[in-house]
Design a binder for these strands. Structure first.
Lengths: 163, 163
DNA sequence: TATCAATAGTTGAGATGTTAAGCAAAAGCC
DNA sequence: GGCTTTTGCTTAACATCTCAACTATTGATA
């Protein structure tokens, strides 16, 4: 029998779960599109960002594509091997790795541009122009009120067991 | 240099990326809360669902918690080992595995209930009551128009009445 | 009864998410 | 210059995601 003591908000109206379900629905057609290319959804995002803004270092690429730097390191390694992107050390700052689109990456983008556009417009149509924009605004507001609101970095020096 | 041929929507207004960023912001305080417990965010969701609805089989648990059945199999295995949940074969259908909360799971829930409630209310406050509800409605609508274009799958009559 | 299809759950493999630790280059300071 | 701190990226370890293949049970069928 469910616990009645404090009544947490229902998981049916839980933001974490709702965000996961929504992402699942949004990604379904994109994954279907990518199935024929051998790309993962993350690799596709990397190409999309580089296509929009041009070559950039790993840090910015991670930020723009919504990926963690540690994940991106591995993703880029695979993509370099597959001829999708290029990677070279920056001349002005040898710490930075500048990532750019390689020929095969351009091919994949060209071949899937129309399909991707159709998927985006279909989604926009289903939700409605107004709700679509409102949703993006709300998600952006949500992201803003998170980690970057201020310092307040809670440092708990614990590390209890659980190896 | 960016490709100009068709102009895909900007990644700055991309739903997949926006959803990931929003989830990141929402999960940050929850992860901080869970850091002291040794639970992952998925394990916490499992406990939350079982706490709200009581024992259930793996399929429904996966649906309610927004997890894939294959992931849940492994998550439950770990949680059984850690004494967080129980697992027993259903008497009426031996294919089904019924999952319930174990004593240690109840403990974790009790110990973190207040903190979880505070996090949820803080988020609600930051976004504002109206936007918070609107966001949940929009995310639900998005999830509905995804894999099953069926529509009308809504169980609750609260859909989009108000402005 | 034997058989086939559907369902519930599990497992395997490869890729990503998450955290912590590590290294090299750059920036700041004496 | 020599020293310390910060920054950018990488690696390691473990958990999860995703897809595909698999087992076991159930239900339908002849």
């Amino acid at each position: 029998m469910p616990n009645e003591r404090v009544a947490l908000p229902s998981t049916r109206r839980s933001l974490p779960i709702a965000l996961i379900r929504a992402r699942e629905a949004v990604m379904a057609p994109i994954r279907e599109m990518l199935a024929g290319t051998g790309l993962t959804e993350q690799q596709w995002r990397v190409l999309r960002v580089l296509d929009e803004f041009g070559p950039m270092d790993v840090s910015r690429l991670a930020r723009e594509a919504g990926l963690m730097a540690s994940s991106l390191t591995r993703i880029v390694q695979t993509m370099v091997t597959d001829g999708l992107v290029t990677r070279e050390t920056s001349a002005s700052d040898r710490r930075r790795q500048v990532i750019g689109i390689a020929s095969k990456g351009q091919e994949v983008l060209s071949e899937n541009r129309d399909a991707a556009l159709a998927i985006a417009e279909d989604l926009r149509g289903r939700l409605g122009e107004r709700d679509f924009e409102r949703l993006l605004d709300l998600l952006e507001a949500l992201a803003e009120c998170g980690p970057r609101s201020n310092g307040s970095r809670n440092v708990e020096p614990n590390s209890s067991g659980r190896g």
